[in-house]
Design a protein around this nucleic acid. Structure first.
Length: 873
RNA sequence: GGGCGCUUAGCUCAGUUGGUUUAGAGCACUUGGUUUACACCCAAGGGGUCGGGGGUUCGAAUCCCUCAGCGCCCACCA
C-alpha cells in the first residue's frame, strides 16, 4: 500500500513534473513517420505579461496538443514572441524620456540599442509563465519575430512581393498619430463620441456682396481649404456654382464646386473642402482635381501655410482663430455638437488624417484564395462558424494594405534610395543594393545610398508566422516545412481575424499555395462577472501568476474551460477556479480511498462489484464516444463537463460506493485491479485539462507507462445501451428509497425491506440496490398483504415499502394526489394528440408508437396511484 | 448609417435537420446528514408561460413575420 498525503500540494508537484517532462524531452518534435499535428502559438508581445486572455487561449492549445500527442500524432507546438513594434517602441520611448533622453535626438542605432536592452530585460517572461500553466510547447523551437532568420524571411517576402509588382509606393490618406509621430492602421483607431463645436464661418464670394456660410468642426483647417462644395440640387446655391470665394484670414481664392456627396440638410449645406486633412475631402479633391495643401507638421502644429499661427498646435489655433474670426465678424454662429473623434489606440492622441508617401501591398488579387477556401469549399473551417460572415465582408471589401510604419523598432524596409527620395532599389542590404544598381548600369557612391527610414507593420511579419517558423520562406523545400505545413489548428481571438487570421491565410496561399491551417478556433474575450472587459484601468484583471499559485495550474485551467464555448465571451470569476480546485480535491481523495483498500487474495469477486464495474466500463465507453465527437467539433467545455460528471458522479459517487468494502473488510484482487485500471482511463481523458494532477496520480498507480504525457488515449470500445439504461433505473430506485428514509426520518443505517409488484421483466441490479440503499430483501409481493405502504413507480416497476409507524395519512394522500394530477394532465395531452386524426395521418409511425407507449404507461401509473389512494381511504 | 449575432432556471450556458413523457446541465439556493476518501463532502429538493405578439404545422424553444431589449463588427456626415 502506498501512502498518499492527505492534501494535494500543487506547487511542489507542478514544479516536479514540469522539470521531468522537459528533461525527458516529451514536448520535443522532429519530423518522423507519424502524422504531424501542429499548432503555432499566436505570438504574444515579447515584453508582455500573461493575462487571462493568454491563459484561456494557451490552455486550449495545450489541451488540443496534449490530446493529439496521446492519440499518437507527432505533436508540435511552436512557441514564440512578437516584437510588437508600436507598443514596444512606445514603451522604450517613454522609458528614455524618463531618463531625459529624447528619441529624436539620438541615432537610429542608439535607439535600437536601447530597444534591445529593454527587450532583453523584460522579454520572454511570458514564456516562463506559460510553463507555469503547464503548456507543452517545443521550447527548442522558440522564435522571436526579430530573430535573424525571421528577419531575413520578412525582408525576402517583401522582395518577392515587390518583384511580383504587388508592392508599391503611393500617396494615401493615412491616420497620423501626432504624438507617436507614426501612421496607425485603420484598425488601430478608436472612434469615440465627444462633445465639440460646430462653427459657422462666413466666406465672401469673389466680386460680389454675397456671402457663403459654411459649418465646420475644425476652423483651424481653413488654411488648407481649396474649394467650397454644395449639392448641385440645392436651390440656395445653384447660381453660385462655378464662382469663387475668398478664404477668410488667408485671402486665398477658391472655387465653388458641386457634388451630391454634400448633404443639403446638414449645417448650412455648404462644405469647405480640405483635401489634405479629411478623408472625404481628399476623395472630393481627387474627383474634382483640387489642390491639396498640407498645413501641419509631424506634431500637428501649423506650418508656414498657417501664416501667423505657424508653429502653434492645432487645438491652440482652433481657439485663437475663433477669436480672430469673431473680431472680424466672420464667425456667424458657434453651436455645441457631438460627433465621433478618432483617437490612436496606443497614445490616445486625436488622429490627424494626412496625406503621406507610404508603402502598400496590393490585396485584391492575392486575397482571392482566402475567400474561396474558407467560404466556398471550407478547406479552412471556423469555429464557431459565425465569424465567417465578418471575414467575408472584410475580404470582399479589402483595401490595399499600408505596410510601412514611421518607427525604428521592427523590420526596416529594404528599400535604398540613391536619388533623393525618388529613385530607389529594393535589396536585402546596402551591398546588394549597390550590386543591383551596378548591374543596371547605374553608378552610385555608397555614401549617397541610404535606406528607407520606416519599418514594416508588425503584422507583415506575423502574417508569415506559420511558414517562417519552419523557415519556409528562405528554404521553401526544407524537410521541416514540408512535414509540418499546413498546420492543423489555430487558436486565437476574433479581434484579430483581419489583422492576423485572414492575412495568414492570404500569405499561405501566396507563398506556399496551401492553407496555413485547417481549423481556426476563436476564443471569446475574457470579461469580469459584470461583463466588463478586463483592463488595467478598472483593475478587474486578476493576476494570472497569483491565481496559479493560489489554486494550482490545473484548477485555473479547469476554471477557464468550464464555461467557454468557442466564440463566447468568458465571464471569469475566481469561484470558477475554486470549482476546479474542488475537483482536484475530489480526484485526489478518490485515489486516497482506493489506495487504502487492502487486498485479500482469497476473496473472489462479488456479484455487486462485477455488476458495478461492468456498468462503469459501459458508461465510460459511451461517454468516451461523446467526448471524442465533441473534440472533433471543438466543444471543449462540453468535453470537460462530460469528464467532470463521469468522474465525480459515476466513478466517485456510484462506482466507488459500490466497491467500497464494509468497514474492516478487504477487497478481492480482481476488483482492485479493475478499479485501478478504470482510474487510469479516467486520468488519461482528463490529462489534457489537468496535466499535473493526472501525472502525479498516474505515476503512483500505473506500472506500464513512463508518463501519462506519452501514454495513449483510451481506445474506442463497444458498449451496451441496455446496461447503461438499466443502471439509470437502479439509480432512480435508490433515490426513491433515500427519499422514503428522509420523509419518514428513518436512519440511513437501518436496513429495510423492499417489495415490488409482479412484472414480466426481471429487476436489474438487485445486488446494487441492496448494498447502496441498505435493503435487506427485495421481493415480489402483492400490496394487499399490507395495510399501508409507501409506493413509487419507475419504468413500469411498482415498488412499495410497508409502513408500520410514522404514518401520516394526510401527507401521504397529498403526495399521491399531486402525483395523480400530474399524470392526469399528462394523459390528457397524450390523448389529445392521439385523438387528433391529422396527427395519426401525418406523424411518422415511430412517433405515434412512442405516444401510444406513453398512453399505456401513464394509464397504468394512474391506475396504480388511484388504487393506492383508495387503499388509504 | 450598413452588416452579423443574441434573448431558455438566481447566474453562466446546452438544446444538432421541428417529434423519446409537461425543456436539461454546472454553479448558486433550500432542507437533512459527518466516528471508518473528500464539508474543497454526501443525499434529497425547489426553481423556467424558452423576451412580447402574430403566423406556418398534426406538432414550435427549434421555421417565418413583427415589436422590444442587448451585444459585436464595419463605416466615420462637415
Amino acid at each position: 500500500m502506498i501512502s498518499i498525503p492527505p492534501k494535494f500540494d500543487h506547487i511542489e508537484i507542478e514544479n516536479k513534473w514540469y522539470s521531468f517532462w522537459i528533461e525527458n524531452k516529451f514536448f520535443k518534435s522532429i519530423p518522423d513517420s507519424k502524422d504531424p499535428y501542429t499548432i503555432v502559438i499566436p505570438p504574444p508581445n515579447v515584453t508582455g505579461l500573461l493575462h487571462m486572455g493568454h491563459m484561456l487561449n494557451n490552455t486550449l492549445q495545450d489541451i488540443l496538443i496534449r490530446r493529439a500527442r496521446m492519440m499518437g500524432k507527432n505533436a508540435c507546438w511552436v512557441p514564440g514572441t512578437d516584437h510588437a513594434s508600436i507598443a514596444t517602441e512606445a514603451k522604450v520611448v517613454e522609458n528614455l524620456k524618463n531618463k531625459g533622453i529624447n528619441k529624436s535626438e539620438i541615432s537610429r542605432e542608439e535607439f535600437l540599442k536601447h530597444a534591445w536592452e529593454w527587450t532583453e530585460k523584460y522579454g520572454g517572461g511570458i514564456l516562463e509563465q506559460l510553463k507555469m500553466l503547464g503548456c507543452s510547447c517545443d521550447w527548442d523551437r522558440t522564435k522571436f519575430t526579430l530573430d535573424e532568420d525571421m528577419y531575413e524571411s520578412v525582408i525576402l517576402a517583401f522582395e518577392i512581393l515587390y518583384e511580383k509588382g504587388l508592392i508599391y509606393r503611393g500617396y494615401r490618406m493615412i491616420n497620423w498619430d501626432p504624438e507617436a509621430k507614426t501612421t496607425v492602421s485603420d484598425e488601430e483607431v478608436n472612434y469615440v463620441e465627444e462633445e465639440s463645436n460646430l462653427y459657422h464661418i462666413s466666406y465672401q464670394v469673389e466680386n460680389s456682396d454675397q456671402k457663403l456660410i459654411i459649418a465646420t468642426t475644425r476652423p483651424e483647417t481653413i488654411f488648407g481649404d481649396t474649394a467650397i462644395c454644395v449639392n448641385p440640387k440645392d436651390k440656395r446655391y445653384k447660381s453660385l456654382i462655378g464662382q469663387n470665394v475668398i478664404v477668410p484670414i488667408c485671402g486665398r481664392i477658391i472655387p465653388i464646386i458641386s457634388d451630391t456627396y454634400v448633404d443639403i440638410e446638414f449645417g448650412t449645406g455648404c462644405l469647405k473642402v480640405t483635401p489634405a486633412h479629411d478623408i472625404n475631402d481628399y476623395n472630393l479633391g481627387i474627383k474634382h482635381h483640387l489642390d491639396s495643401i498640407d498645413i501641419f507638421d509631424d506634431s500637428a502644429n501649423l506650418n508656414h501655410h498657417g501664416l501667423h499661427y505657424e508653429g502653434k498646435n492645432r487645438f491652440v489655433v482652433r481657439n485663437e482663430i475663433e477669436d480672430e474670426l469673431k473680431l472680424n465678424s466672420l464667425l456667424v454662429k458657434k453651436e455645441s455638437y457631438s460627433h465621433n473623434v478618432g483617437r490612436s489606440e496606443r497614445t490616445n492622441a486625436i488622429i490627424e488624417p494626412k496625406i503621406s508617401k507610404q508603402w502598400f501591398l496590393k490585396m485584391e488579387e492575392i486575397s482571392k484564395p482566402a475567400i474561396d477556401n474558407v467560404l466556398q469549399n471550407e478547406n479552412i473551417k471556423f469555429f464557431p462558424n459565425k465569424f465567417k460572415s465578418t471575414y467575408k465582408y472584410w475580404l470582399e471589401n479589402i483595401k490595399d494594405w499600408n505596410i510601412s510604419r514611421q518607427l525604428s523598432w521592427g523590420h526596416q524596409i529594404p528599400v535604398y534610395y540613391y536619388d533623393k527620395d525618388e529613385n530607389y532599389i529594393v535589396a536585402k542590404n546596402k551591398d546588394e543594393a549597390l550590386h543591383k544598381l551596378n548591374k543596371k548600369g547605374i553608378s552610385v557612391k555608397e555614401s549617397d545610398l541610404y535606406q528607407d527610414n520606416d519599418v514594416l507593420d508588425t503584422w507583415f511579419s506575423s502574417w508569415l508566422w506559420p511558414i517562417s517558423v519552419f523557415d519556409g520562406i528562405r528554404n521553401p523545400n526544407n524537410d521541416e516545412i514540408k512535414y509540418y505545413y499546413p498546420t492543423q489548428d489555430l487558436v486565437t481571438g476574433p479581434d484579430i481575424i483581419f489583422f492576423w487570421v485572414a492575412r495568414m491565410i492570404i500569405s499561405g496561399y501566396e507563398f506556399r499555395n496551401k492553407k496555413p491551417f485547417s481549423n481556426v478556433y476563436f476564443t471569446g474575450i475574457v470579461r469580469d462577472k459584470l461583463r466588463r472587459k478586463m483592463s488595467k484601468q478598472l483593475g478587474n484583471s486578476p493576476d494570472a501568476v497569483k491565481l496559479i499559485q493560489e489554486y494550482g495550474a490545473d484548477s485555473v485551467r479547469v476554471g477557464l474551460m468550464l464555461s467557454s464555448a468557442a466564440g463566447n465571451d468568458l465571464l471569469f470569476d475566481e469561484s470558477l477556479c475554486k470549482q476546479g480546485k474542488n475537483f482536484t480535491n475530489k480526484i485526489w481523495n478518490a485515489l486516497r480511498l482506493i489506495s487504502g483498500w487492502e487486498i485479500d487474495n482469497k476473496l473472489n469477486q462479488s456479484e455487486v462489484n462485477k455488476i458495478g464495474i461492468n456498468w462503469y466500463e459501459n458508461k465510460f465507453s459511451f461517454t468516451l464516444d461523446h467526448i471524442n465527437e465533441n473534440f472533433e467539433i471543438y466543444r471543449i467545455s462540453d468535453v470537460l463537463m462530460s469528464i467532470y460528471k463521469l468522474i465525480w458522479d459515476d466513478y466517485c459517487s456510484w462506482l466507488l460506493e459500490i466497491l467500497k468494502p464494509e468497514y474492516g473488510e478487504k477487497i478481492d484482487p480482481k476488483s482492485k485491479y479493475q478499479i485501478n485500471e478504470l482510474l487510469i482511463k479516467n486520468l488519461k481523458i482528463l490529462h489534457p485539462f489537468m496535466p499535473f494532477l493526472t501525472e502525479e496520480i498516474f505515476s503512483k498507480i500505473s506500472n506500464d507507462e513512463k508518463s501519462i504525457v506519452i501514454s495513449s488515449w483510451p481506445k474506442k470500445t463497444k458498449y451496451e445501451l441496455k446496461t447503461i439504461n438499466d443502471f439509470e433505473i437502479t439509480k432512480e430506485i435508490i433515490s426513491q428509497i433515500r427519499n422514503y428514509r428522509k420523509d419518514k426520518s428513518i436512519s440511513f443505517k437501518t436496513s429495510i425491506n423492499l417489495f415490488y409488484v409482479r412484472n414480466n421483466r426481471k429487476l436489474p441490479n438487485v445486488e446494487i440496490i441492496k448494498k447502496i440503499a441498505l435493503v435487506n430483501e427485495i421481493k415480489e409481493s402483492s400490496k394487499d398483504k399490507f395495510n399501508q405502504v409507501y409506493s413509487f413507480i419507475i419504468k413500469g416497476f411498482e415498488f412499495f415499502i410497508p409502513l408500520e409507524e410514522n404514518f401520516d395519512k394526510e401527507i401521504e394522500l397529498e403526495k399521491l394526489n399531486k402525483d395523480l394530477n400530474y399524470n392526469l394532465g399528462f394523459l390528457k395531452s397524450v390523448e389529445s394528440k392521439l385523438k387528433n386524426e391529422k396527427f395519426i395521418k401525418n406523424a411518422p409511425s415511430n412517433v405515434i408508437e412512442i405516444e401510444k407507449k406513453k398512453l399505456i404507461d401513464t394509464k397504468q401509473k394512474i391506475q396504480s396511484i388511484k388504487k393506492s389512494i383508495s387503499d388509504l381511504n
